[in-house]
């Protein structure tokens, strides 16, 4: 399935279908991840691969045009490079342990520690969350920094010089859905449960799949639905850009602050055991707070990304609404 979609993407010249295929590709890989027991990853991939990325691509296409030029740049060079890389990869796979075998080195050494000790050391059932938010919490801090960086970059590139059309023409990026009652009503009914679901995912990450990142994306998607239904300006009145920017920074700071508090309490950076005397409770608290930091930053940045992209669409009256 994945292969078919990927090849189809390479084949098609129509960018709109390429994006749609990419979205399907994201969804298929998400289901593949479920089959591979990686539920958290599947959740995220579904949100990102089939959600945010294609959405942003569609908005971009709206601006740059959906037709790809027919010229091949350097197909032969490409083929050679690809062939070399492919051969290398295949060579590398010769000696790989068979797929799924339990005694592969990857499943020895570090991983069993997580599976066997995390119940006692962290005390939450979802091992992925334990590793993500405690054992390798610093990677996750880096991840939040990455998404924050992307937010900064997109704002610097797209917000800065000219939302002219926004300034000159109020009520610009108005949705054509505005005249349609049913989607609006359905949307209004849908938005609160989406937000509730986001909160559920946020705080349920310790027990089942989910956590700050997924929750942030879901929360942002509620706002995105709002934008689609009521237009960008209405949405921006509800959540202003400068607040989002402030909150995005706060999320990252909150995460960092947990680490610094641990430092001040005399333990290592992000050693939650410094927070409370009882280490299980301390780990819980630490994970809860940093997940909140992740959620806040991700939600704000995703909204900012979306606002920045949509806000850039030059308003032309005869254009239909965005494709998404």
């Amino acid at each position: 399935m994945l292969m078919v979609t990927a090849v189809a993407i390479a084949w098609t010249r129509h960018l709109f279908s390429a994006v749609m295929l990419a979205s399907i590709y994201g969804l298929v890989s998400a289901s593949f991840f479920v089959a591979m027991d990686a539920v958290d990853v599947a959740f995220t991939e579904a949100a990102v691969g089939a959600g945010i990325s294609p959405l942003l691509m569609l908005v971009t296409l709206r601006m740059v045009g959906a037709k790809e030029a027919t010229s091949h740049n350097h197909p032969y060079a490409a083929l050679i490079i690809v062939a070399v890389v492919g051969v290398l990869l295949l060579l590398g796979e010769q000696d790989l342990p068979a797929f799924g075998s339990a005694d592969a080195p990857a499943h020895g050494h570090v991983a069993p520690h997580y599976l066997q000790e995390s119940a006692a050391e962290i005390g939450i059932p979802n091992v992925v969350t334990s590793v993500l938010a405690s054992y390798r919490a610093f990677d996750t801090l880096g991840e939040v920094a990455v998404i924050f960086t992307a937010g900064i970059g997109v704002m610097a590139l797209l917000f800065s010089d000219t939302p002219v059309h926004l300034r000159n023409l109020p009520n610009t990026s108005r949705s054509t859905m505005e005249d349609q009652v049913i989607p609006r009503v359905v949307g209004k009914i849908l938005i609160p449960p989406i937000m509730l679901f986001a909160l559920y995912v946020q705080f349920h990450g310790e027990y089942g799949p989910g956590g700050g990142f997924q929750a942030g994306v879901i929360f942002a998607s509620a706002v995105i639905v709002y934008v689609m239904l009521f237009g960008l300006d209405a949405a921006m009145q509800v959540v202003s850009v400068s607040w989002l920017r402030f909150l995005a920074a706060c999320g990252l700071l909150l995460y960092g602050a947990v680490g610094v508090v641990c430092l001040l309490a005399g333990k290592n950076f992000l050693d939650y055991n410094a927070l409370l005397p009882d280490h299980i409770a301390a780990q819980h608290l630490g994970i809860l707070v940093i997940e909140l930091g992740v959620g806040v930053t991700v939600a704000c940045v995703v909204m900012l990304l979306f606002f920045a992209f949509v806000g850039r669409i030059p308003h032309l009256p005869d254009h239909e609404a965005r494709d998404g």
């Binding site: 990686a38 995220t44 945010i52 599976l115 992925v128 993500l132 880096g142 991840e143 970059g153």
Partner: peptide
């Protein structure tokens, strides 16, 4: 679980790059 954690991070990095 370890590869799952790593890939969660990598997915986020990926979407950041895409954006």
């Amino acid at each position: 679980p370890l590869p799952h954690v790593l890939i969660l991070t990598a997915i986020v990095v990926g979407v950041a790059t895409t954006a």
